[in-house]
């Protein structure tokens, strides 16, 4: 009997969820912004208790591994790694972008959108994003996402240009945006894409949540896509700034050259 604990701390609000083998989800979401470190264990405990199990009833520990806030990613991944190590459980790594897309899939399908695009604000016109196509059976029973543009760091203008091209290919297609990239780049989106061609996720489901991460983790665990805790790694999608500069050879001279 599977019971997977999933953590999502890559966005503004931390959350934890437990999903059972049948797909029943119990989750706890922080009411405070950026309270990940302080509040993490309380959220975990609340999710486990509301699922009516004990810690010993867990079978996997999953975490959203990014992209997103570097600090947030580290809190979730470290917590998951150590809990898995101590409880002797396998881990499941889930992309924050995939979790966000999955979390709005029902709304996107109901709104008749073809594309689901999670956007995470990476500042200075950059965004961590991916483009998925929403797929569903005619009775709307089975819904899934298939990736059409890989998850990576995009300039918002480049991403929108690629989306414009996709819209031109599919007459009347609509894009469903989610994530805090909407808050940062709404003006650019609205200035680039034709009116009526896109929809924004309502705020209640716009930000990262553990529940869809848990749902994806369940599918991955059922498919045997688990890793040892030591292999559960963050997906920062960006080098540290100093590493970028070291590679580019633009690290401060003050550091590199002695006076003599």
């Amino acid at each position: 009997m599977m019971n997977i604990l999933a953590l999502e701390t890559t966005g503004k609000y931390g959350s934890a969820a437990v999903i059972s083998g049948e797909g029943k989800v119990f989750s706890a979401v922080s009411a405070e912004e950026m309270n990940h470190l302080k509040g993490m264990i309380d959220l975990v405990d609340e999710a486990i208790k509301s699922a009516g199990i004990a810690k010993s009833g867990l079978t996997h520990v999953a975490a959203s591994v990014g992209p997103g806030s570097f600090t947030g990613i580290r809190i979730g991944v470290t917590t998951a790694r150590v809990m898995a190590q101590m409880l002797g459980l396998p881990c499941v790594g889930v992309s924050s972008l995939e979790g966000m897309a999955y979390g709005v899939l029902d709304d996107a399908v109901s709104a008749g959108a073809l594309y689901v695009v999670p956007l995470i604000n990476a500042r200075r016109h950059q965004t961590y994003a991916a483009v998925y196509e929403a797929q569903f059976t005619s009775d709307l029973e089975n819904r899934s996402l298939s990736s059409v543009m890989e998850e990576k760091q995009y300039m918002i203008e480049d991403l929108l240009e690629a989306l414009s091209a996709k819209l031109a290919e599919h007459d009347g297609a609509k894009i469903f945006f989610t994530g805090d990239g909407i808050d940062a780049y709404a003006e650019i989106i609205e200035g680039t894409l034709p009116e009526g061609s896109f929809i924004y996720a309502p705020e209640e489901i716009r930000y990262q949540l553990a529940a869809p991460v848990a749902e994806i983790a369940l599918r991955k665990a059922q498919a045997g896509q688990t890793v040892d805790y030591s292999e559960l790694m963050p997906e920062y999608m960006r080098l540290a700034e100093a590493e970028q500069r070291l590679k580019a050879g633009t690290l401060s001279d003050r550091i590199r050259k002695p006076v003599q």
Binding site: L37, M40, I41, D45, K55, R74, I75, T79, V82, M86
Partner: peptide, 9 residues
């Protein structure tokens, strides 16, 4: 984060 996860687990 590690210490808390360990203490809890």
């Amino acid at each position: 984060a590690a210490a808390k996860a360990m203490a809890y687990a």
